[in-house]
Design a protein around this nucleic acid. Structure first.
Lengths: 190, 190
DNA sequence: TTGATATTATACCAACCGGTCTATATAATG
DNA sequence: CATTATATAGACCGGTTGGTATAATATCAA
């Protein structure tokens, strides 16, 4: 059974992903998690910011695991990444375009208003880039190429999610999958 | 001299870009634009949603113009786009990471909460894609290739802006410029 | 059983939100 | 000049926000 604290974080992750930071109210979190406000402030004395930081960290770790797991089945990095992006497209569609990019909104909403959340998001994005970079490294790319390409991959996916959610259509992400796959297949490894 | 209405829209664009939809208050808009609330509701009787829709449209048109202007000086699409992305990186840095992607946040924040704003953002993103697609078309790509690549380009840039703003560093966008340029140079035009 | 600690449960608060209201300038028009 | 539309000005409203205070209740060691 999940502890009250975990339940609160989990609920926060879901709401942040769907509605963003400023549109997610503490009252909504306690209502959906079934915990009273007293518990929330017991576990997160500094309030919304601290809770969100924990949620961002959790989401980041979760996405990182998803990436590693999603890339593990196919050896060739180009094919593995293309296939993974297609699976994101399906996930976004299945969620009715309310999932995908749990970090994006918090990252953008708090860039200039919360140092703490900015750092949490920066760290989380680092984990995602690292996960891709390691796959590329294992596929024979040099460390420098792997790092630059990983940033590129995360950028393209992030943007693809935005377009797919906005258009209520998984196709933009699928086009990203196609082009990204083609590029990774053709670009030199050094 | 800008009319009161234009002044309100312009202020709204700036605030939306920096803080997003839910963090931008009507009181803040009227304070910074110097117009009283009565004028705001005179020009936008339906309130915040209507005003934001106007701001999104304006931002979309403005970005579209920037793209066309930015791509006009270099004939080769790959070089032109790479150069344009580098100029975005400079712009993001110069704004202290509070500019870039005026549509992103509104698009994400309102995907499932405002049909009207969702449509406005969808339309605006369409304009951006079209601007890139036309450059690619002029560069010899087939219409289908141009459309798919344009979506890819917008995705990568959008994501690059997120990473650059989050990391308070223009380099992610510059890496996007490098990889995007390399891919567009090497990918077949049919 | 007792006492201390950990946790839950609400009542409450000032501040702010988007939105409505009425009153008043200002300008164009008969 | 009188009248009418346009536009400005800001007080005000109910509801919600994040956050605080305090009391009740589990939990468990001694």
């Amino acid at each position: 059974m999940a502890s009250t604290r975990d339940q609160i974080i989990e609920t926060t992750c879901t709401l942040l992903e769907a509605h963003g930071y400023h549109a997610t109210g503490l009252n909504q979190i306690i209502a959906e998690s079934g915990s009273p406000k007293g518990s929330l402030y017991y576990y997160f004395p500094k309030g919304k910011e601290e809770l969100t930081a924990a949620a961002v960290e959790r989401s980041g770790r979760l996405v990182e695991q998803n990436i590693r797991a999603g890339l593990a089945n196919i050896e060739d990095p180009a094919q593995a990444i293309a296939s993974f992006v297609r699976s994101i497209a399906r996930g976004v569609e299945l969620s009715n375009f309310s999932a995908g990019g749990p970090l994006t909104m918090v990252a953008m909403e708090t860039v200039n208003s919360s140092e703490r959340l900015n750092l949490a998001c920066r760290q989380a994005y680092g984990w995602l880039c690292d996960a891709f970079a390691e796959k590329l490294l294992a596929g024979g790319f040099t460390p420098e190429r792997a790092a630059s390409l990983a940033t590129f991959v995360v950028s393209a996916i992030e943007g693809g999610i935005i377009l797919s959610r906005t258009n209520h259509n998984g196709d933009p992400l699928r086009q990203v999958a196609v082009e990204l796959g083609a590029y990774l297949r053709s670009t030199p490894k050094t």
